[in-house]
Simulated assay, not measured.
Amino acid sequence: MAEAEVLYNIKFKRARGNTDGATPSTDEPTYCNVNYSKAQRPGSKQPAASNRRSGVTSERVALLVLSVLLAAAVTALGVTLYKNTQTMKSLQKLQEECEAKHLTDDSDERLMKVTFCLTEILSKTEPCKVEQTSKPPPVRDETCPRCEDGWEPHGGKCYFFSSVTLTWDQSRTQCRSMRGDLVVINNREEQEFLECRLSEKMETAEDKFWIGLTDSKNESEWLWVDDTRLDPSLTFWLLNQPDNWRWKNYDGEDCVRMGVKNGAKDLKIWVDESCNSPQKSICEKPEKA
């Protein structure tokens, strides 16, 4: 809308002079018209255009910054969801591949073999690798785990206490699939550690664990799985053991299991047993370098 104009009629008086020095005569009025627009009327205030432009610019900058932050947050969330989805798909694929290898087995044996397969695949991953450009002094990185998940560190070795009941040979196969073997007990301190852990894990008196000791090659010639002979001064046989009892199995008892619920003060908890008897087991392997 065009601004309205206002007409002001201003009246002035002008005196007529007398060249003869006589008294001036009556003043004559003079008129003058002055136009003002409403926006320019004297005494009115008009806001500065520069202040308005500055306020609009600040609002636009703030809105732009908020938009960028929101876009970044949405992008980060999308990347995280994508990575989680890919991980779940990979694990599902591994499980399907392991199950496909053992479709003809019965349910119990199939479950055991699938478990071994997944354990072997996952154990091959290296969760903690630190690449260094130079060779620093050999200092142990304590931030890296010494043993894989499910394994317990002690005395420079990692121990796995399997809750699956298998024959002695099957238990050894399980340990080997995880790059270990049935435990070889080298000293009294190691026996103390194992006895303490088993006393916590055993549920019943017969809930025992295979160790890597057998005389299956030659009767009464006890050998560890690393082919070392049993040291007679370092044995922990339970009273009246080994007895090679043939009542349950004609071939006798050629493998060793261990464990006493609630522990034993003298650490003598070894018992010979038929190698075909299903038992839990103890695996061991060296700690990571």
Rank of each mutant, 00 (worst) to 15 (best):
K89H: 10
S90L: 15
V114P: 04
C117G: 05
T57Q: 14
T119M: 08
R60K: 09
V68H: 00
E120V: 00
Y82Q: 09
R53A: 10
H102M: 07
L66F: 11
S58Q: 08
K93G: 05
Y82N: 12
S58P: 00
D105N: 01
S123K: 04
E59T: 14
K113C: 02
T104V: 03
L64V: 10
E109F: 02
L77M: 13
G78T: 07
R53D: 06
Q86K: 13
N51G: 09
R52F: 01
R52P: 01
L91K: 09
E120G: 08
R60A: 03
V114Y: 04
N84I: 01
D106Y: 05
L81A: 15
A100N: 09
T119L: 08
R110D: 03
L94Y: 02
Q92K: 15
A100F: 07
C98S: 04
L103D: 05
T87E: 12
R52S: 08
K113G: 00
T75C: 12
D106Q: 04
E120L: 00
K113H: 04
K83C: 08
Q92E: 12
T119A: 09
T75N: 08
T104L: 08
A73Y: 02
M88R: 15
C98G: 03
S67A: 14
E96I: 14
K93D: 14
K113N: 04
A73K: 05
L64A: 12
Q95S: 07
A73L: 03
N51Y: 09
L81R: 10
S123D: 03
T125I: 14
L66S: 14
V79Y: 07
G78Q: 07
N51K: 13
E97N: 15
S90D: 14
L94F: 01
E120H: 02
V68L: 10
G55K: 13
V74C: 12
E59H: 14
L63M: 02
M88D: 15
M112A: 05
L118V: 00
R52W: 02
K93A: 12
L94I: 07
K113T: 00
L111D: 06
A71K: 00
S54H: 15
T85E: 15
E96W: 10
A72P: 01
L63E: 02
K101P: 04
V114F: 07
K89M: 11
S123G: 07
L70W: 11
L70R: 02
Q92G: 10
R60H: 10
I121V: 13
T57S: 13
S107A: 09
L70F: 14
T57E: 11
G55Y: 02
